[in-house]
Design a protein around this nucleic acid. Structure first.
Ligand SMILES: [Zn+2]
Ligand SMILES: [Zn+2]
Ligand SMILES: [Zn+2]
Ligand SMILES: [Zn+2]
Lengths: 152, 152
DNA sequence: GTACCATTGAGACGGGGTATCACTATGAAG
DNA sequence: CTTCATAGTGATACCCCGTCTCAATGGTAC
C-alpha cells in the first residue's frame, strides 16, 4: 500500500466479503475490518479493538469479537491459540509456525513444514476435511540455555 | 498399578523429583502429584484440583497451580494450550497430536508425525534446544461437513 | 419515508488463572 | 525433643478476556 493515494476509500477485501455474504454494511464493522487490514499479521482481539477504537471511537468490545467471528465463518481470518497466556490471535489467512522458548517466551517464526503428507493421511482416515494446522516447537533459546534460567 | 497392594505408599516419581530439587515434602503437594500420576495423560488444572481434593480435602486451587508450575520447571510436566476455550492442559511428558474439528470441537488424537526432521533443522538454525513440539490439525469432521454446520 | 429487524454498545456475568497475606507446619539445628 | 526461620498453604480478592443480555440504533427493502 503506497499510502499516498488513500483517496476513494477502497471497498476493502474483507468489507466486500461481508457485504457479499449478506451482512449489513455498518461503520463499526468497517472499523474492525480496517483495523485488521492495516495491522496485517497476527493481532490479539484487544489490539484490534484498540485499533478499531481509533477508527470508530466508542466501538464496543463485543462488536470486535462478533465481527471476528463472522470473518472466521467466512474463512477470511483464522483464530489461533496464543503461545503463552491462552489468548487467541486471529490471524490473516495463511500462516507460519512458531519456535517458542520456554525460558524467556521468545517466539521465532518459521515456514518450513513437513505436515502436508501426515496431515492429509490422518485427516482422511478420520474423515476430516483439513482447514489448516498449527505447529509449535518448544525448547530453550541460546540465551536461556547459557543462563540456565528456564523458569522463575 | 494392581490396586491391590497399595501398601507402602511408593515414593512416586514426581514426588521424588520435587524432593530432590530441594522442595519440601508436604501433604498438599503429594496429593497433587498423586492426582497427576493416577490420571495419566492430559488433565485440566481444574480436573487435577478436583482429583487432589479427593486425596487431600481442603487443598486450595493455588496450591495445584503452584505445584504444576514447579513440576513444569523440573520438566516433568508440559503445559499445553487447550484447543477451545484457551485453557491450559498440563500433560505428562511425551505426547501425541490432535485433530480438532472447528465445527463441533471434537478432538481426535494421533501419533504420526513428520516433524522430527523439520524441528531439528529449524531449532538448530535458531540456536534452540528442542524440548518438544505441538502439532494440531484443524478441519471439519465428517458429521459437521455433512450438516454443513461450521459455526453457530 | 416507513417499518422491520439486524446490529450495536453498555454492562453484567463467568471461567480460569494470579496476587496477597496471615497462618501453618517442615525440617534443620541444638 | 524443642525451637525456630521460613517455605508452603488456603482463603480471598482481583484481573483478564471472552460471552451474554437487552434496550436503543440505524441499515435496507419497499
Ligand atoms: Zn529464551
Ligand atoms: Zn505447517
Ligand atoms: Zn465436528
Ligand atoms: Zn510430532
Amino acid at each position: 500500500m503506497k499510502s499516498s493515494e488513500t483517496k476513494a476509500e477502497r471497498p476493502g477485501l474483507l468489507a466486500r466479503l461481508l457485504r457479499e455474504a449478506g451482512y449489513r454494511d455498518t461503520a463499526p464493522r468497517r472499523a474492525v475490518v480496517r483495523a485488521i487490514e492495516e495491522a496485517d499479521g497476527e493481532q490479539s482481539p484487544e489490539a484490534l479493538w484498540r485499533a478499531a477504537q481509533r477508527i470508530h471511537p466508542g466501538i464496543g468490545r463485543a462488536t470486535v469479537y462478533r465481527t471476528l467471528e463472522l470473518l472466521t465463518g467466512l474463512g477470511a481470518v483464522r483464530p489461533l491459540i496464543a503461545a503463552e497466556g491462552g489468548r487467541r490471535y486471529p490471524v490473516a489467512v495463511g500462516g507460519h509456525h512458531h519456535l517458542v522458548c520456554s525460558g524467556c517466551g521468545t517466539v521465532v517464526e518459521f515456514d518450513e513444514c513437513a505436515e502436508g503428507e501426515v496431515a492429509r493421511r490422518v485427516a482422511r482416515r478420520q474423515g476430516f476435511a483439513i482447514q489448516g494446522h498449527l505447529l509449535e516447537i518448544y525448547g530453550t533459546c541460546g540465551d536461556c540455555r547459557v543462563t540456565g534460567e528456564v523458569r522463575t
